[in-house]
């Protein structure tokens, strides 16, 4: 079975894709949900890159955000809670030519699927992994998530969340072989778009945390930050994510070379200001699917090798 057969369909393709070619049914998220703006950004990026819908796969877990693939006209795999990264790893390992995106919520990525998150960072399989982090379980109606701020009330912790919120950026940057770590926010669509675009262009595992509000359960979460741009600090660098449109709006800026892992880890620590931008990027990191890329053989070739194997067991 030859791998090249997978490319037959790509021969002489002069199709031009419009944004509408990637759109699916109208999304059933609540109005005001940040997921809508992520979906729009993604559809723009697919259009800009003229991604072939049939060669693009969106894998998701469970939760509001994981309905994402249903609202696209690409291949999609709406899996089970916390396990999207494992499915996506299987897809990319076996079909490296496919463009793979993973969409997870905070529960998916850093709670029930935390083990897979850590290992996916290390595998560094070429895909975009989006963590749509609204700091709460929305679909199941307001339960505390690992990223819920300490003291924030929910239905499972009605007197306020007991522990300090997990910092997924710090954890991701601490994993060996991390190759792309960025943070953006749904209320800054230009930054969101630029970040997702950079993630898509990255060769390796591009992990992006998207700060979001849930209009029902955490509408107040980033209220002050949304109203007051001085609460945001942008990481800027020639090799980073540049968003000229925000130059005048966000005055706090820190120059950060995304090659500097130590500085990235410092910047990821909790601070007065919410830091957005590219924390770390290293395309030289080994990618698991490349280390496992093996030649394909015809059935007859395999039969010949099989005979040799059986010779070893011959009586």
């Amino acid at each position: 079975m030859s791998c090249s057969l997978f490319h037959l369909a790509e021969a002489e393709d002069d199709r031009v894709f419009e944004m509408s070619d990637y759109q699916g049914p109208v999304a059933r998220w609540c109005s005001g949900c940040g997921d809508h703006s992520v979906l729009t950004s993604v559809q723009r990026i697919l259009t800009d890159s003229q991604a072939k819908p049939e060669s693009t796969v969106f894998v998701s877990g469970i939760g509001c955000s994981s309905r994402f693939p249903h609202y696209l006209t690409t291949y999609g795999f709406h899996g089970i809670h916390g396990r999207a990264l494992t499915l996506a790893t299987g897809v990319k390992l076996s079909r490296p030519e496919l463009d793979v995106w993973v969409v997870m919520g905070d529960g998916d990525c850093v709670s029930i699927g935390a083990g897979h998150w850590i290992h996916a960072v290390r595998y560094n399989v070429d895909m975009v992994a989006l963590m749509l982090d609204n700091n709460i379980y929305g679909l199941t109606k307001k339960q505390t998530s690992p990223t819920t701020p300490q003291g924030y009330k929910s239905n499972t912790q009605p007197y306020g969340s007991y522990l300090p919120a997990m910092n997924p950026l710090e954890a991701t940057l601490g994993v060996t072989n991390a190759s792309f770590v960025a943070q953006t926010a749904e209320w800054l669509p230009a930054h969101l778009f630029a970040t997702l675009k950079a993630a898509h262009e990255h060769r390796g595992f591009a992990w992006v945390r998207i700060l979001q509000r849930c209009p029902h359960f955490t509408a107040d979460m980033y209220g002050d930050v949304v109203k007051d741009p001085s609460r945001v600090e942008m990481l800027v660098h020639d090799d980073g994510i540049t968003v000229p449109a925000l130059d005048k709006i966000i005055e706090h800026r820190v120059t950060h070379d995304p090659k500097d892992i130590h500085r990235a880890r410092e910047l990821a620590e909790e601070s007065e200001q919410i830091r957005l931008g590219l924390f770390y990027r290293d395309e030289s990191r080994p990618r698991y699917e490349q280390t496992r890329s093996l030649p394909h053989h015809t059935a007859d070739e395999k039969m010949a090798i099989m005979q040799q194997e059986f010779d070893r067991y011959a009586v």
Binding site: V59, R83, T86, L87, V91, G115
Partner: peptide, 18 residues
């Protein structure tokens, strides 16, 4: 894989992809 669950997920992902 990193655990039994992931092993099933990777196999299903690969099978899904043909």
């Amino acid at each position: 894989a990193e655990d039994e669950i992931a092993a099933a997920g990777v196999a299903i992902g690969a099978s899904y992809a043909g």
